[in-house]
Structure formats: C-alpha cells, structure tokens
Computed example of a mutant assay.
Amino acid sequence: MDTAHILQFVDEVLSANTGKHLNDLQRGIIEGILKRQKYSDIANTYGCTAGHAKDVGYELLHMLSDIFGEPVDKRNLKSVLKRQSTIKIALNNSNNIEGNSNTINYINGCSELPTPTPDKSQPATPDY
C-alpha cells in the first residue's frame, strides 16, 4: 500500500469515526512517521515547532488507537495501518457477498428461451 492510499485510508477512517478529515499537518505527520522522520524535520516542513508537531502527532496516534482498538505509536503505525486496512477490505468484501451487491441469477446467451425440464417428483397440474 503506497503513501497516498494510506493517507486516504486514515482520512476515511478518521472521518467516519470523528466527522473530521486529516489536516495538512496530520497528513505530513503520518507521511513523516512512515518515512522514519523526526518530529523536528516534519515541523520544519510545515512551519511549526517540533513540540507542536509532536503534540499533534501524539493526539492523532491516540485517536487511531481508540478507533482501531489497539495501541498505535510511531514504531508500529505502518503495521497497524496495513493490518487494519486489510481487515476493512475483507469486511467490505464480505458485506458485498452477503447481498449488498446486485446479483444476476440467470444469463441466457442463446436466442431461444430454455425449455424447463419437468420435475417428476411433483404431481402434474391440470389445465382448466
């Protein structure tokens, strides 16, 4: 999963659970953490102090911990996001299998309608 997909996934999860989208600094923090950057380097890129970037990062990782139900920190962010995105994809696919998608029950590639085979276990219905 590339960084753009990871950021999209986190934004969707965060939005679904908090009603808020990632801001530029939060996006930069996730991207920076995945690139093993220090908060001071991320702060320089976004024109804020290292302390502010660290506070925002801590808050973001804490929200993700609450959402995913497991501890999320700088060291395990990548593995947690990979695992959680796989779980989300699996859940989405299973929801579609359970009937949330359109299903075609019969496709006839011939120009003639099929002739039904009589069910010999059922009594014949009389024509009135």
Rank of each mutant, 00 (worst) to 15 (best):
N17V: 05
N17M: 02
N17W: 10
T18E: 07
T18Q: 03
G19T: 09
G19S: 04
G19K: 09
H21P: 05
H21I: 07
L22R: 07
N23H: 11
D24K: 08
D24C: 01
L25Q: 01
L25W: 01
L25G: 00
L25N: 01
Q26S: 05
Q26P: 04
R27I: 03
R27S: 08
G28E: 02
G28M: 01
I29R: 04
I29P: 03
I30H: 08
E31A: 10
E31M: 11
E31V: 04
E31Y: 09
G32N: 03
I33P: 06
I33Y: 04
R36D: 12
R36K: 14
Q37A: 00
Q37E: 11
Q37L: 08
Q37S: 03
K38W: 03
K38G: 00
K38E: 02
Y39D: 02
S40K: 12
S40G: 05
S40A: 14
S40N: 13
D41C: 00
D41F: 02
A43P: 01
A43D: 03
A43G: 09
A43E: 06
N44D: 03
N44P: 00
N44Q: 06
T45N: 07
T45Y: 02
Y46I: 07
Y46D: 10
Y46F: 15
G47V: 04
G47P: 06
G47Y: 04
G47H: 12
G47D: 14
C48N: 01
T49Y: 06
T49M: 00
A50I: 04
G51Q: 14
G51D: 13
G51V: 10
H52Q: 05
A53F: 03
A53Y: 00
A53L: 02
A53I: 02
K54D: 01
K54N: 11
D55H: 12
D55A: 10
G57N: 08
G57Y: 06
G57M: 07
G57V: 07
Y58G: 06
E59K: 12
L60E: 04
L60Q: 03
L60H: 03
L60A: 04
L61K: 10
H62Q: 15
M63R: 09
L64R: 09
L64K: 07
S65T: 08
D66S: 09
D66F: 05
D66I: 09
I67T: 10
F68C: 08
G69N: 09
E70Y: 06
E70M: 13
E70L: 11
P71T: 13
V72L: 10
D73C: 10
D73W: 05
K74I: 11
K74C: 13
R75L: 15
R75E: 15
R75S: 15
N76R: 13
N76D: 12
N76M: 10
L77R: 12
K78R: 15
K78T: 12
S79C: 12
S79V: 14
S79L: 14
V80T: 11
L81R: 09
L81N: 12
L81S: 13
K82F: 15
K82L: 15
R83D: 15
R83E: 15
